[in-house]
Amino acid sequence: MSILAERIGAAKAEGRAALVAYLPVGYPDVDTSIAAMVAAVEAGADVIEIGVPYSDPGMDGPVIQEAVEVAVRAGVGMRDVLRAVEAVASAGAAATVMSYWNPIERYGVERFATDLAAAGGAGAITPDLIPDEAGEWIAASDHAGLDRVFLVAPSSTDPRLAATAAASRGFVYVASTMGVTGARASVGDAARTLVDRTRQARPDIALCVGLGVSNGEQAAEIAAFADGVIVGSAYVREMIEGRGADGVRALTEDLAAGVRRAEVRA
């Protein structure tokens, strides 16, 4: 059974969207980052995207780059990530690893899947791995019973939307705009259009929207048409500006209220 599908389904049963919070492991240090993740769970996040630091984060904007650079320099690795997974799972959220592909490949794909499942993890989001290249990961995640989340983008063709959604388990990550991570003033109509197109391609999987969402108001807007709202850079900014677990808790409360006041639910 998919941990993510179950968790997002439970939110839906409450008539709301799920809240997915991203935080990288190791910023400003491993313990503080794990404490922040636990704070997000306690304040109402349903899913934590546990970020694996990577030296070349090509899909990330300046805020996340700044944080992961610190973690990379400190030598934070998969062992620390798995510790975060255990903590988040114990706190009661779906612990989902977010990693560029090379750290997973270097750790060993099967070993990663086995260790992630053993730590209580739900699965992994792989922003630079498309299903076309994912044969080994698909096999390993099947074997370990893990979710695997691929991304769709506004530029995805219909055949690619269908193939990507079909290869995903747990949810599909709907990238709201063409671009990198980072807060945006408005998330725009592209996200809604893409959610509609993806839902047509595969109606039976949850669709979570990310890129650009930073506050409760935007979360409410997205929650009106998506199954989940993903927030990343806004969380990292709380950490960079030194507000730590308290800042994370306050942001989560704002966002958690947002995903509950969506006016129109599909």
């Binding site: 090509g58 498309i130 076309d132 290249e133 691929f150 991304l151 530029s155 690619r160 063409m178």
Partner: peptide, 22 residues
């Protein structure tokens, strides 16, 4: 056809770039 030289090459990029690469 998919850009592989044995086990090397391929496309390890965000989905957003696939349309442009195609």
């Amino acid at each position: 056809e998919t850009g592989h030289f044995g086990i090397f090459g391929g496309r390890f990029v965000p989905e957003a770039l696939i349309a442009a690469l195609d």
